[in-house]
């Protein structure tokens, strides 16, 4: 077995296996009871709090994914189709500049923007558009969605941009030549051919988002907390590593199932579309 395999084993397989093992054990005061049991899973499924957090995580991650892909697509499309070839690299470079700052700083900036006395509220108040500060934009799920959608924007723009760049422009002319308008050409040729990039973007955003805990903690308020916050609480506050591991494994399973579904669905729609 070569060093790379050994490395992968040590860095990935061993920790994963350890976490997996923990899910079948229980915490007994300060020690771990290593009798195998499904009680953690039973509790995770039956406790309404866990279920709610799990559903909310999926829901928030889904909303973030949707928001990110929907905003990333027009940007990627614009750069790919309307920016002259020699300026494209520059545009992509400029798009990523805001993301050179630390993730934490950007989360704090959103607090400053979305806060009760934040930039957004003061501006809207000053312009007379609203009478009192908007409160639904910070310390709830909306704030989490906005912050995460912004944080993941470049990771969505890049794969979509690459997919659009790969589309042979003569295919679009061929579609026009065969009688389609700009709009129907977009629907029948551009979109299906960009689909791999869109699916990649969706998964790249969805997978890490569902397990994010910094953003919900900082801007989510009590209603914006996600499953990762609970995992952290289990490990660090409640000192219940087996329960934390169980929730982590369940979150992983959900991500795997949803990713597989998204992937299969995209395959299927591509066929039906045609």
């Amino acid at each position: 077995m070569g060093p790379p395999a050994l490395y992968a084993l040590l860095m990935l397989a061993v920790p994963l296996a350890t976490i997996f093992a923990y899910t079948f054990w229980t915490q007994d005061g300060l020690t771990i009871d290593r009798t195998l049991t499904f009680s953690n899973y039973r509790e995770a499924f039956n406790d309404p709090l866990y279920r709610q957090l799990m559903l909310r995580s999926v829901w928030i991650a889904g909303a973030v994914t949707l928001a990110t892909v929907m905003t990333a697509f027009p940007i990627a499309y614009f750069v790919s189709f309307h920016v002259p070839q020699r300026r494209k690299a520059l545009w992509i470079f400029l798009i990523t500049i805001p993301f050179w700052t630390s993730y934490l700083i950007r989360v704090f900036l959103w607090k400053v923007i979305l806060g009760y006395n934040g930039v957004l509220n003061t501006t809207l108040l000053g312009l007379g558009i609203i009478d009192e500060p908007l409160s639904f934009i910070l310390y709830n799920a909306n704030a989490v969605v906005i912050t995460l959608a912004h944080a993941f924007a470049p990771f969505a723009i890049l794969p979509i941009f690459v997919a659009l760049e790969k589309i042979d422009r003569s295919l679009l002319e061929a579609s026009r030549d065969l009688g389609e308008t700009h709009l129907t050409t977009f629907l029948r040729v551009t979109l299906p051919l960009a689909m791999p990039g869109i699916v990649a973007a969706a998964l790249i955003v969805f997978i890490p988002t569902i397990g994010d805990y910094v953003t919900p903690r900082l801007v989510g308020g009590p209603d914006g907390l996600m499953i990762a916050n609970m995992i952290q609480t289990q490990y660090l506050r409640l000192n219940d590593a087996p329960m934390g591991a169980t929730l982590a494994v369940l979150a992983m399973a959900i991500v795997a199932v949803i990713s597989a579904l998204v992937f299969l669905a995209s395959r299927l729609t591509a066929r039906i579309w045609a």
Binding site: S170, L171, D177, L178
Partner: peptide, 14 residues
């Protein structure tokens, strides 16, 4: 008119 493109432009997803 209809055109046969130099690169053929056959739709790869169909």
């Amino acid at each position: 008119t209809n055109m046969v493109f130099q690169t053929y432009a056959v739709f790869p997803h169909l």
